[in-house]
Simulated assay, not measured.
Amino acid sequence: MNSFLKKLCVFGSLLAVLALAACGGGGDKGADEASPTNDDEATSFPEKDINGVIQWGEGGATDIISRTLASIAEDEVGASLVMQNKTGASGAIGAQYVYDQPADGYTLLFGAENPNLYQLLGISERDYVNDFVPVSIIGQSYAGIVVNKDSEFDTLEELVDYASKNAGKLKMGTSGEGGLPHVASAMLKSELDTDFNLIPYDGDGPLAVALLGNEIDVTVLAVSAAQEYVESGDFKMLAVLNNSSLDSIPDVPPITDIYEQFDQYLPWGPFQGIFAHKDTPDEVVQKLSDAFEAAQNDEEFIEKLTSLGVDPLNLHGEEAVEFVKANQSTSTWMLYDAGETEISPEELGIPKVGE
């Protein structure tokens, strides 16, 4: 009889276990309900500081604009923005770092246009279109061709004439392959048969220092980064890469006033934007976009951009995506048509603008 009771108890216990399993396990279910889901995390975002990674060095256009906006945006975001510069490889070091972090919105890339060219130039597998989602496109900048105040060149025609007749003698500072000066030099080479000795630096700030110290003969800087040096008389800006003059530097001629053939490339220029990992939850991206949109409506920030020769854009969502794609198309095909790369943008699935 005792043996029967023991077997009955064992059988009863087994039934109880099976019943709990069929219900999903009462104790485990409670634990699951207490664990945050992705929706819960998006709702409570942000719960800690957000890291902002600037892919260029201190003092350049991207650095100035990013840090100015970050200080305004903290109240809108509801968290501190801890900014840091991660330079190298034409900005690819910073871009890869952000890509390698968890896709949770707590690490953002404050970047410029360069990742649009990485795959074409073999710099990195990363690019904006496939690996990131734009949180905000802040503004469209313009570029200027600049020389030291003591340079023998006072006009773009003089510079072009020398660079055409003395291949490789003039040192042009660049921010690496795919950077603004590299693309601009390809444009000049294609249309005017110039030939520069390209010297790489880590962004606009180091480039400006190099030009001040006469380490280089010429460079192409975002107007926002060069303007203070032009106004102080340290630099001469020979032309802006645009098809009309800029209000911030009205005395500097647009390049199309000197060489009409550049009109086919313009308007074109660098831009600044904020990007998150492509797998960041949509709700988090939307929260960030809304916060940065509000911050960019700040009158003082708009005045700051305008004073730097930057057109405020404040683009988000599909508009931002289309802007990035159009910039990638223009820049990649410009380099390819100039003979600066053997890889065709078509091989990467990048169409020409308008196609």
Results as ranks from 00 to 15, higher is better:
11 F>S: 15
12 G>E: 13
17 V>K: 10
23 C>W: 15
28 D>K: 14
35 S>Q: 15
44 S>A: 15
47 E>A: 14
47 E>F: 10
52 G>E: 01
63 D>Q: 09
75 D>R: 13
78 G>M: 05
82 V>F: 13
84 Q>N: 15
100 D>N: 13
101 Q>V: 02
102 P>C: 06
102 P>S: 07
103 A>W: 02
104 D>N: 08
111 G>H: 03
117 L>Y: 03
123 I>E: 08
125 E>I: 05
131 D>G: 01
138 I>T: 15
141 S>F: 07
149 K>Y: 08
155 T>S: 13
161 D>G: 00
172 M>T: 09
174 T>A: 02
177 E>Y: 13
182 H>G: 00
182 H>L: 02
183 V>H: 03
189 K>S: 15
191 E>S: 00
195 D>L: 04
195 D>W: 04
198 L>S: 11
199 I>S: 00
210 A>Q: 02
215 E>R: 05
216 I>T: 02
217 D>W: 01
231 E>C: 02
237 M>T: 11
241 L>G: 00
252 V>M: 08
262 F>Y: 11
265 Y>F: 08
268 W>M: 10
282 D>A: 12
300 E>W: 09
301 F>L: 11
309 G>H: 10
318 E>R: 13
323 F>P: 04
326 A>W: 11
332 T>I: 03
337 D>K: 08
338 A>R: 11
341 T>R: 03
343 I>T: 14
349 G>T: 06
355 E>A: 09
